[in-house]
Design a binder for these strands. Structure first.
Lengths: 96, 96
DNA sequence: TGCCATTTTACCGATAAAGATAAGCTGGCT
DNA sequence: AGCCAGCTTATCTTTATCGGTAAAATGGCA
C-alpha cells in the first residue's frame, strides 16, 4: 500500500476549527481580523479544502486561545484531557 | 510588539523531529524514502527554516509512528495548557 | 591526512498557499 | 417578497513549499 495522505485529516481539522470558532461565537470576519488570515482562506481551511501551513494553524490556535494540539486531536479530550498522551502503542495506520 | 506568533515554533518542531528521527536511527535519506519528502526538504524543516504544510507534517509523523501532536508540543507543555491561559496579547474584546 | 556518510545550502521548475477582491450562495429576519 | 449577515467560490498576484539535483559544509574514522 502506497501512501495517499488521508483525505480526512484536513476535513477533521477543519471541523474542529469550525466547532471551536462556533463555541466562541466568532464569525469568519472576526477571526480573520484576529489572525490576519483572510476570511476566504479560513473558509477553505475549515471546509478541508486547503492544506494550511504550520504557522497558519498556529495563528488560528492562538486567536482561539487553544493549544495547536487541540486542532489535531480528536474527541472530547480537546479541553478535558489532563496529560494523557500515552506516548506509546499508537497505531496511526490510517493517518497516512 | 506586533502579533508575531511564537518565533521559535518552527525551530521547536524541527528540534523534536530531529530527536525522534535520532531515536529511531534514521538518516534523512531513509526518512525521505519513508515519507516521500526529499531529504533537503526534511533538513529545512528540522532546522526550522521551512513552514511545512499540515499534510507534510502528517506524513513525517506517520513515518515515525507518532501522533502529529508530539511534533507540536512538549508533553510538559501539553499538560500545563489544559484550561488555557490567556498568556498575552490577543484581546479579541476590541473586535467584538 | 584523506575518505566517506550525512547534512546543509543553493538553484530550478511545478504546484499550492495566502491576501485581496468580487461575485454567488444560504439562511434568518421583518 | 426583499434585505442582510454570514459563508462559499472564483479569479488574480505574490510568495512559499516541495521534489530534484548538485554542490558545499560537517563529522567520523582509519
Amino acid at each position: 500500500m502506497t501512501m495517499e495522505i488521508e483525505p480526512n485529516l484536513l476535513a477533521d481539522v477543519g471541523r474542529r476549527l469550525r466547532a471551536l470558532r462556533a463555541e466562541q461565537d466568532l464569525t469568519l470576519e472576526q477571526l480573520a481580523r484576529l489572525t490576519g488570515i483572510s476570511a476566504p482562506a479560513l473558509s477553505l481551511i475549515e471546509t478541508g479544502k486547503r492544506d494550511a501551513r504550520l504557522t497558519t494553524l498556529a495563528k488560528i490556535a492562538a486567536a482561539l486561545r487553544v493549544p495547536i494540539r487541540t486542532l489535531l486531536e480528536d474527541p472530547a479530550d480537546a479541553a478535558s484531557t489532563l496529560g494523557d498522551v500515552p506516548a506509546e502503542g499508537y497505531d496511526l495506520g490510517d493517518y497516512l
